[in-house]
Design a protein around this nucleic acid. Structure first.
Lengths: 230, 230
DNA sequence: TCAAAAGTGTTCTGTTTACACCCATGG
DNA sequence: CCATGGGTGTAAACAGAACACTTTTGA
């Protein structure tokens, strides 16, 4: 018959860490910053900060990302709460990780001024503080499952892109080579792309047709999900 | 050039709420308790409590479940952190939801003494406090995705069960009728069941063969996942 | 003898995979 | 004129969906 007015319960620091995935035509990258406070000052870290009383976690993630990088209007999704007792040696902290996908090229301007933030390809990212590497691992796993269950790409690609870029994106996420024809057929059958008359001439002499997402159809496919075997 | 020693950051109460799914041969149910403290005393609620400084979230979930229901050795999985600013009117609280699957029959003895805990079928569960209904919704969605991506059932069924029980479990989770022959064929092709010589005579005159999971094969299928379209 | 649940295979259809050649162009 | 990347279709294998009748036995 407890009378619980919450007064005797422990309170903790609640951190939010962001795994920001970017794609730059060839490779999947993550955005890291050099930490400028103790502990672990000077080491590479995910972008992170603390939840404030007057905001929810989604808002905190957006605020923190914006504050540290200048990035705006980034859609983020909650990943997992990490809570090992000694994960942060300085103080008991629980961290809720968020992940996001962005097109590196179209956000470079925002980022270029932030000298402590830097893109690293997944393969040769530096060692990270605390349990941040586990966050990244889990984010990659989630991204892969995600890529097979919904179309992604709207967030990671520029507005206009070639089929080859789209395929490279999937190859980067899934970390395997895909068959060109099967990929195109599959994607076309989803009926979410619009072929433009324009060509991208930067990659070949022949040029490659540019595509755009049909935003409405894309959104509805994202809603309903689908099964994408590759 | 912030010098951040964490001292100025807000601390919050971190709750853990548990969505306990049970299965009793026909229906999917959830375990609720009548809340015995303010606010919302006397209302139905998920099983919940607060994280303590010296434990991680998984441990807290196990402790809370055990403390309120007597249930032991229940495997739980983290679902999502709910953080709307005014979700708990009494105080700013973030709640990390966990969900679990258990076989009702084999845990009835533990539970029978706890008069404030009760099983409700999903369809006619009572109104819940705070945002607990959203937690349940999300847990159901997760459970459904889960059921299609990994074999489940080990947790929700008694050790020996009939094919019909297994099928009913999947029907309850996915909330749709499945074809008997296709279901059996599919499950057999996974090669994780052992057919016993025993029959269950309680459901029919003819009797139905009992099966067991081959624990080793089951575990490895759980690891790797699979794609189960039904 | 019949009601109630158990058990069992085949066909059809759609999806996934594997695979190779010509095209357009700038240098 | 040729090197480079772009574009295209088909056949074979596999997985999923639909479907109906026989068996057992306790009452």
């Amino acid at each position: 018959m407890t009378l619980n007015n919450y007064k005797n319960e422990d309170k903790v620091l609640l951190a939010v860490d962001c795994i920001i995935f970017g794609f730059d035509k060839e490779e999947l990258k993550i955005l890291l910053i050099k930490r400028n406070f103790e502990p672990e000052k000077g080491k590479w870290s995910l972008i992170g900060g603390f939840l404030k009383k007057e905001e929810n976690l989604d808002e905190a993630a957006i605020r923190i990302l914006h504050h540290l990088t200048g990035l705006n209007n980034i859609y983020m999704e909650q990943l997992y709460a990490f809570s090992k007792v000694d994960r942060d040696p300085a103080e008991r902290t629980i961290s809720v990780a968020y992940y996001a996908l962005i097109d590196i090229a179209s956000h470079d301007d925002d980022l270029i001024r932030i000298d402590s933030a830097q893109w690293f390809s997944l393969k040769n990212a530096p060692k990270l503080i605390f349990d941040h590497h586990r966050m990244v691992e889990r984010a990659i796993a989630r991204l892969q499952r995600r890529a097979l269950g919904k179309p992604i790409g709207f967030e990671l690609l520029p507005e206009k892109f070639t089929m080859r870029q789209l395929q490279k994106l999937y190859e980067a996420i899934l970390d395997k080579k895909l068959d060109k024809r099967n990929f195109i057929n599959k994607f076309n059958s989803l009926d979410i792309l619009v072929k433009l008359d324009e060509k991208d001439m930067s990659m070949s002499r022949k040029g490659a047709y540019l595509f755009q997402f049909d935003e409405e159809k894309y959104r509805s496919k994202v809603e309903e999900g689908f099964s994408f075997k590759l």
